[in-house]
Design a binder for these strands. Structure first.
Lengths: 252, 252
DNA sequence: TAAATAGTGTCTCTCAGACATTATCTT
DNA sequence: AAGATAATGTCTGAGAGACACTATTTA
């Protein structure tokens, strides 16, 4: 019954997202082989013989970032199977989205390819900015991330383990490209049950009154969702277009 | 760079959903080959050499239902790649969800397998009810359908081209397993811009005052979403567990 | 002190849910 | 007339957005 399609490969590609410098950024690698030699692409690789798709995605994430799973979120976005999407042959690709805080990467990953953070908006603005059909993959991943923030607590996965409400708000503003009223945002996120857990500590990272620190709470689904109608639209451009290699990492 | 994983096949499986007899139902086929000979499964098949995933899904839908695309909605749900999900070898599967009105099927499909509508709730209640990992595929597809009704106008794809608001409401009640206040539902769907287009005609399908007929409007995204908090929960059981073959179709 | 940021209070508007009321058909 | 269903009206409470105001830090 099953007839094997010849030369069929299945790959997993990752849209590893973070918020750096008030801006949604994605980890891209510079390709060291043909085709698309020298072009940017989402990191990824073939699924191994005894691997599940999720396992392959976690393995790729570890290889690229050197970071372990701790607190990260990973989620399948979709699959892509155009017969001509890879000139070398039939390669199906499953795209995963990973959300992580703006961490300094321990290593540059297993292979020698240069990995760098790049603003998502810049890549989405140019359909030719990424190899293969990765522009479409990134479009879908960014849209998924946008939607997930509305009705889940995944925004906090972009923050360090302890964070202020202002830091969380800046995540939402970066992902959505909007300006959010600080007062209303504060009231909203603190009123939703189990969304935030106060640590009792305070920080003076900013210039003004110290802010309370929170951890991500156990609530997964937000009800009602955070977003209704959005009013203020922020200039989507990032303040800093630095696509620095992840070795020379600087926290902001 | 690319090393082909041996014996890799990619299939597309379909969760073809409809609302029949006040109940969300899915088209299942009886397997005519091993493994899982005689068991029920979601219809599907291998992606052909020159096909995109979406094309393969549309082709399978046509083969199973004999119906053309007219007004139907199809959407990728997810991909499944457990190495042991198919005992014959490595088969990745991409699950698609299709939504259609309760139509009499022109033919029983290309092959001789018996295709029948079955209540989704029955299948979900028993993890062993479907072959392979299709119980999980159906779980994910049903959850996707549930969510999509909240913030899109896809509920209307379960209805015939012209429908009454009561018929649309019964779709929502069937998919969500809830009781919805007819008055509030009427006010909601008629107030959302471009959600429904009145035809100007009326029908007397019911016993009371004739209802106005509508078509599905051009609005794709509902804002705000229909569902907030749900109160009334309906008994999920279907009034009729008839899993009649699609040849002997009776409209309700 | 001024500037900056954190956090609270309050007003208004929209909308969901509950439910009464009216409208129009069949029997 | 009685019953059924369609459609509208009205009240209430929850919550979003706007924005004034207070609180607590640094320069």
């Amino acid at each position: 019954m099953i007839e094997i399609v010849p030369h069929t490969a299945v790959a997993v590609d990752l849209a590893i997202l973070t918020v750096r410098k008030q801006c949604l950024q994605v980890l891209v690698v510079e390709r060291g082989t043909r085709p698309y030699l020298g072009a940017c692409a989402l990191p990824g690789g073939l699924v191994e013989a005894d691997e599940d798709l999720d396992q392959a995605a976690w393995r790729e994430l570890l290889e690229e970032t050197g970071l372990d799973a701790a607190g990260l979120h990973i989620e399948q976005v979709g699959s892509y199977g155009d017969p001509r999407r890879d000139p070398r042959g039939r390669v199906f690709s499953v795209c995963y989205m990973a959300l992580m805080p703006d961490l300094p990467m321990p290593t540059a990953g297993g292979d020698a390819r240069a990995a760098r953070w790049t603003p998502v908006a810049d890549l989405l603005a140019d359909p030719e900015s990424l190899a293969f059909d990765h522009h479409r993959l990134l479009t879908d991943a960014a849209e998924r991330a946008h939607g997930k923030l509305e009705y889940t607590n995944l925004g906090a996965t972009f923050c360090p383990p302890e964070f202020t409400i202002a830091e969380l708000r800046q995540v939402y503003e970066a992902v959505w490209g909007t300006v959010i009223d600080p007062a209303n945002f504060h009231r909203k996120v603190t009123s939703v049950e189990d969304f935030l857990v106060p640590t009792g500590e305070k920080t003076q990272r900013g210039g003004g009154r110290p802010a309370a620190l929170y951890r991500r709470g156990p609530a997964l689904i937000l009800h009602p969702a955070i977003l209704r109608t959005h009013t203020g639209v922020m200039p989507l451009a990032c303040h800093d277009h630095d696509s620095s290699p992840i070795m020379s990492d600087t926290r902001n």
